[in-house]
Structures are given as C-alpha cells and as structure tokens.
C-alpha cells in the first residue's frame, strides 16, 4: 500500500490524530452501502466491502449494507402496489439518513442492472440531494469500465447527489492484477473527505485504469445449441494453429 494513503500513518486523513476531524465529528459517520450483486457470494459485494472498509479506515463509520437481492420482490411490489414493504422502507430510510453512500452494481447489458436502477426509481427523488456518493461497478471484462461515467454518474447527477471524482470499476481480471487497491483507496479517501467536509487532496494515490463487461459471475455462454464439432475446437488450440 502506498504509505500516503494509509490512514494509520497519515495524520491528514487519520481522524484520531487530526484535531479538525475529531472536533468536527463527535458522532461516527453513517455509511450506507448499496450492493446490487445477485450471486452469493458476489464480486459486487466483495468490491462494496472493500470500499466500505477503506472508508472506515479513514473515518470510523457505522456501516450498513443494503443488499438489493434481498429486496428484489419488495421493490417489484412497490411498482405495482405503490408502497414500500417493511424491509425496503427501512433501507430507504437508511439511505436517506446516511452521511455518505457507496453504490455498487454489476454491469448488465452495458449499464447498471435493472434492479439497481429500480431501487433508485422507488427512492424519494430528494433523498440524495447533496449527499456524497461513491459509484462502483463490476463486470466480466474491462471493456465496460466507462459505464461508471456514462450510466452511473448521470443518474446520481440527476438525483443531485455529490459524486466523488473517482469511480471504481473491477473486472474479473482486476482481482488478480495490480491497480484495484489503489483505486479503492483513492475513491474511499475522496468519499471520507467529502462526508467529513475535508479536502481530498491527501487521499490521492496513483492508480491503474482497468475497468469491464457483464456480471462477473456469469461464466456460461448463453445456451445457443449450434454444433461446433469438437475436432474444430481442439484444432483451434493446437500450437501449430497459431
């Protein structure tokens, strides 16, 4: 880890040693994490947890995670019934009352998932006004990384949230590559600083750019049943074919 981003050694971002921060915040930051991953476990949730932990290291926070999968039926019912069920209503209250928000979605069909969008569709339109939001997404390849900029950022701009400059995109390959931890730290620093009213300057760290494509947990090709003769598949892999 870059020492400059380590809150334990960096007085500017460590609230325990920074009098400005500790004076400002007598209570802990209320951090709400909205995760739209569908698998259990999901790489979307994995990314969400990493981001939340990184924010917590800078600004100790009470973290509440909202798993949209658990609310899927209530969200759907809200569209037809017109009112939120108990669990969804509690999640909406938590989001509205948060000091900062981390939102993470898998990429579906070149955008946020429908479930992710649906949650914000049934949220009060003023619930996010002025609220610091860290946007993040996961996918199967880096080719969808700009989904953060062309889908998530406009959505939260419309809702008049304050979106932190760094969005974090994790493709499957990023879990075994360099760069992701640095992007997580940088974005977390920005969110922590915004939520506590500090400059994010001290939180910057160099980071790679990698980003991605579909839900990272999907490995099977869609079930077309056309026959590719097995010899052809084998031959394609033989070293002489290259």
């Amino acid at each position: 880890m870059n020492p400059r981003t380590n809150p334990r050694t960096n007085p500017r971002t460590n609230p325990r040693t920074n009098p400005r921060t500790s004076n400002r915040t007598n209570r802990r930051m209320k951090l709400v994490v909205v995760s739209a991953g569908l698998s259990v476990p999901s790489s979307t949730r994995l990314l969400a947890d990493r981001l939340a932990a990184a924010v917590d290291r800078r600004t100790p926070a009470d973290i509440q995670v909202v798993e949209l999968r658990d609310l899927a039926v209530e969200i759907a019912h809200t569209f037809t019934n017109g009112f939120a069920g108990k669990a969804l209503a509690a999640a909406q209250d938590a989001v509205a009352g948060a000091d900062g928000l981390i939102v993470v979605t898998p990429v579906f069909s070149a955008s946020y998932s429908g479930l992710f969008k649906s949650f914000f569709d049934v949220l009060d339109k003023d619930a996010l006004v002025g609220k610091p939001v860290l946007i993040a997404a996961t996918g199967g390849t880096a080719r969808h990384s700009l989904v953060l900029e062309h889908a998530l950022r406009p959505l939260f701009a419309y809702l008049r949230a304050v979106v932190v400059p760094t969005g974090v995109y994790a493709a499957s390959e990023d879990w075994g590559a360099e760069g992701l931890p640095e992007r997580i730290e940088r974005a977390a620093g920005e969110l922590a600083s915004l939520a506590t009213g500090l400059s994010a300057a001290g939180a910057h760290a160099p980071g790679g750019s990698g980003n991605d494509a579909s839900d990272g947990f999907e490995t099977d090709a869609p079930g077309g049943f056309e026959v590719v003769p097995f010899e052809d598949q084998l031959a394609k892999l033989s070293p002489s074919a290259v």
Partner: peptide, 27 residues
C-alpha cells in the same frame, strides 16, 4: 469450469478462456 469470476485470475487464468481451458486441460 467453476462460476466464480475472481477464482480465474487468482489462479492465473482468464475467465474468457473458460471453455478453451476446459478443452485443452482435459485433453
């Protein structure tokens, strides 16, 4: 083949090659 995306890079492989890995490794 396994359906957990991050397991592939954790073991030095690329999930997009899943089918090809299954074919070559099994052969």
């Amino acid at each position: 083949r396994g359906n957990t995306g991050p397991v592939y890079p954790w073991f030095g492989q690329d999930i997009r090659e899943g089918i090809n890995l299954a074919i070559e490794n099994y052969a």
